[in-house]
């Protein structure tokens, strides 16, 4: 499988193969690329970011680790239905979303937008 590494802006061209039951990644220039290549081959994952808008403020948030690519839409639905509450930057909004092991964390709070 040919793919592009998304870990950093360099964007290494990766080639991932299964050889003797082992996944081999070539073309990466750092260990993060190898990890990404393996995960892309077995279960592609992405960090999900979004914003939730309330009457007087907007919260931006992300999943602290990458989650299964196919679960993005479902996770987004759950995030969008959170209740209005006082949050600070870094607070966990949803713990272990959809049993992926990822927490949804506040990245920014915009007042009077």
């Amino acid at each position: 499988m040919e793919t592009i590494c998304i870990c950093c802006p360099i964007g290494c061209r990766l080639s991932v193969k299964k050889e003797n039951g082992e996944i081999v990644v070539t073309g990466n220039t750092c260990p993060r690329g190898k990890e990404y290549g393996i995960s892309e081959f077995t279960l592609p994952k992405r960090v999900l970011t979004t914003s939730v808008v309330f009457n007087d403020f907007t919260l931006t948030m992300k999943t602290n680790i990458a989650i299964d690519k196919k679960l993005q839409n479902e996770a987004l639905k759950q995030i969008k239905s959170i209740y209005k509450k006082e949050y600070k930057i870094g607070d966990v909004v949803i713990k272990n979303i959809l049993d992926t092991g990822a927490d949804v964390v506040i990245t920014g709070k915009l007042l009077n937008v």
Binding site: T3, I4, C5, I6, C7, G11, P44, R46
Partner: peptide
């Protein structure tokens, strides 16, 4: 655009 953005935003 950056290569990784084509991968993760368009091809995905």
């Amino acid at each position: 655009g950056l290569r990784r953005n084509i991968r993760q935003c368009v091809e995905d």
